[in-house]
Amino acid sequence: MNERPETGTPSASGLPNQRYEGGPTYRRAARSVVAVLSVTAYTLLGPFGYLLFALLYALPTRRPHRRARFLQAIFHRAFAFMHHWLRWARIMRYDPRKLRGALPDGPCIIIANHPSLTDTTAIIGTFGGMVTMVKPAIFRSWMLKPVLKASGQFEGPSSDPLDMQRIIAEGRSRLDAGFKLLIFPEGTRSPEGGLHRFGRTAFTLACQADLPVVPLVIRYRPVFLSKRCRMLWPPARLPELNIAVLDAVEPTRYQHDSREMRDAVLATYHQHLAPLQA
């Protein structure tokens, strides 16, 4: 499985991949102050953005898919802007302008490892035009639910194992409508430098809908906004995010066997992330 050039700014340091690292306290404190200011600005300006979304949502439409694409385009621009800000403010380094259009045309299932909270914003900010499963606690928020729903996102699985029936149906309906679907197959954030076992949801959908899976490999050095590294206490060295788009994986190659497909793709991820796991 070939790896295309990575998005984002290439590593200037040439250092080997590293897990979360500390550093001089004053540098971390400076970055922390900028992070606090950014969160404050977001908190003050965010409600206006949500209000705009709410107004767009309230507009009557006969074409819900068209409105969903329009709202997805706004998400795309908003997340791209957010990453430009984060780069400008030297909170993290990632440029979403690179490698746009590297995904296949038409519906597909995009999967990615999930080292940090910024993965979703980075992927959507780079490629745009996709739907994803949203954590139930966030999806059910009274403020976000209308906008998320109108843009085609759907509620992620609950703790009920049989809730997957709904997830498969929701995923299928989005793919049938021509949307790209983003799924993090680990179901939670990755352990630092590693991977959890992949679930089969993405691969089951790919096999059922006969659509390709496009794996994205995310590398973060040092990891920021993982479960251990919080927003308000970033690492001293500037966190650098890279996204690599691997070749699309067709279910026909695995005779539409979601287990085989999952195992093969997981093995590929382990190969690509081996330096991080060393």
Binding site: D160, P161, L162, M164, R200, S258
Partner: peptide, 26 residues
């Protein structure tokens, strides 16, 4: 180490084998 898709398949198999059904929203 089963996953949620396994749960779905297992629920179908249990229904077939034992004739009992679990509800998705239970």
């Amino acid at each position: 180490g089963l996953d949620s898709i396994d749960a779905l398949e297992l629920a179908l198999a249990v229904h077939k084998e034992f004739g009992v059904r679990t509800q998705a929203d239970d």
